[in-house]
Design a protein around this nucleic acid. Sequence first.
DNA 1: CTACAATAATTCATCAGACCAATATTTAAA
DNA 2: TTTAAATATTGGTCTGATGAATTATTGTAG
Lengths: 235, 235
Amino acid sequence: MTPSHKSLADTTAEGIIKYIIDNKLKEGAQLPNETTLSSLMGVGRSTLREAIRALVSRNILTVQQGSGIYVCHNTGVADDPLGFIFIENKEKLVADLLEFRMMIEPRVAALAASKATPDQAEELLHLAERVAECYDLGKSHSEADAIFHAKIAEISGNVIVPQLEPLIMHAIDMLIDITHSELKEETIKTHMAIVNAIQKNDPIAAQDAMTLHLIYNRDRLRKANEKSSLNNSHQ
Amino acid sequence: MTPSHKSLADTTAEGIIKYIIDNKLKEGAQLPNETTLSSLMGVGRSTLREAIRALVSRNILTVQQGSGIYVCHNTGVADDPLGFIFIENKEKLVADLLEFRMMIEPRVAALAASKATPDQAEELLHLAERVAECYDLGKSHSEADAIFHAKIAEISGNVIVPQLEPLIMHAIDMLIDITHSELKEETIKTHMAIVNAIQKNDPIAAQDAMTLHLIYNRDRLRKANEKSSLNNSHQ
DNA sequence: CTACAATAATTCATCAGACCAATATTTAAA
DNA sequence: TTTAAATATTGGTCTGATGAATTATTGTAG
């Protein structure tokens, strides 16, 4: 039941990664075409394609028919690397995702506040304003919101959080469906509080502001959830 | 550059997931063979195999030549789903992984302490003892240690953390190479402190104990790292 | 009847070739 | 120069054949 020895496709996938690293290919760089790559790796085309598939699903490569094979832009969110699909109780999953955010994001905000340069704080301000714009234009703000939080994660300097946080936010977006207009004022206000704290390099204030922000968020989701579970009482 | 429409292989992968969910296949369950599955999904065998590759790399399926296709045991740790391979500064990566652990694990321990039943606390005690055994027998304790921490994550009731924590610990194990004997007493002692706090359902004590444990851990790694960077000063 | 070895059947692994579809490039016309 | 058509390039998919690992069956010796 336990795979005894690596398949050629797996070895080939490793070979491709090695190729990327050795040739210092950066995001967006193009790889040789399938035929060339398969002879480079010394395998048949179908085997190579299986290797590529594995890397695509790991968000390392993107492939476009007629164009070529490229190294992923890390901006793309990997597709469910933590296997959330198989968690049966989706409501609890959302609750736990929010709980998880409350564990890390205030700390991340504190880190960011202690490290942020004026330029970074400025950037963050613009991103917060963009979220506000989305509210004004009636557009979905979830993407802009994700970028705002991602920026904080980036400023924190920790390399794990920026990889992880998009997954969390993306999963939340996938699982819930809410109207955003209700808490517009609250969101804008708490976002600005976070920005201000980071601008002032005040970790404690940043941590508290983020905590408040998430509390508002969670509260909003909880109410939206109660409403929807009244409307459709099945499942 | 942005893939316009899903490839057949991706659609097929989703189809397989749907198949697993619809048929309520559990861990270790066997799927139909390639030929059957390909006609079930209405695609050629090569396409089906690419879909399977993608799912294997996501740790959803395992495949063994001559035997069959199975649903993964979740115990297996997915191979680098967060793309750590491509982070260039490995030393910083380790530091950030440890920092990340310090963000979440004390909180998780507190959660676990507030929820643990006597049975669960008992189990946890056994796991701590097993780690101690590994020290006594001179074996590597990293696996037993991972199980110990995973149990705490499970007791916490949050479904995200148990998925995530193995990844972190596994990554740390992959990246560093330390001798474990030095801090044997300290590890055993702090593990026991955590267990005691959880047994008493004392969240604060659990949080503090876990924090201390991780501080000792980080300190040990830092020293080990300094030592090794003296020995081999290349890279 | 059991134990064990040989055989056969099943299943995945890999390759090769053919043809389709999307994209990119070149060429030709306006 | 701009635009449109033709062509080349590249990935997408299918089929069939052969190899390798595993499992199931069979046959024989004890």
